[in-house]
């Protein structure tokens, strides 16, 4: 390991935390039972992980052009990934994809049937 400045060490720590949360999110994508649960775990953890990696790049490289680009990209991810998540969730529900057997309650379906 070569000599690193203190901000570079902190940057590497943040990048490692981001990589670990990426791994958790992808595990959730594989393990959980239906589309909505997968969407929850994957969107939260992978968004946080990738934004963490980008923030770590900002801390690593300081106030240079690379750092500001990384901050811009992190803000962009945090704003857009929830929007695409609930677009997919709404489309999946209206395409009639079933929730899992463990589901307790589905008020959305009841309201849809009331409106017909």
């Amino acid at each position: 390991m070569p000599d690193l400045a203190i901000n570079q060490i902190i940057g590497y720590v943040i990048i490692c935390i981001g990589v670990i949360f990426d791994l958790f999110g992808v595990l959730g994508l594989v393990r959980l039972p239906d589309v909505y649960n997968r969407l929850q775990a994957a969107t939260k953890s992978v968004t946080f992980g990738s934004a963490g990696i980008l923030f770590g790049v900002f801390v690593y490289s300081g106030f240079t052009s690379m750092g500001f680009k990384a901050i811009l990209c992190a803000i962009f991810i945090l704003l857009t990934s929830p929007v695409s998540a609930h677009a997919i969730a709404k489309a999946a529900h209206s395409a009639g994809i079933k929730l899992t057997d463990k589901t307790v309650i589905d008020l959305y379906q009841e309201d849809k049937e009331l409106q017909k």
Binding site: I15, G18, V19, D22, G25, V26, L29, V35, R38, L39, A42, T43, V46, T47, G49, S50, I53, L54, G56, V57, Y60, S61, T64, S65, M66, K69, A70, C73, I77, S81, S84, A85, I88, A91, A92, A95, I97
Partner: peptide, 30 residues
Amino acid sequence: SVADRIVAIDILGILIIGICAILAIALDRS
């Protein structure tokens, strides 16, 4: 179902941004 595949592709896109960020500091190219 189709929705599972769409979710997976969306997540893959966000993951690749992370790979690009680490490549940027590995090769020192912004």
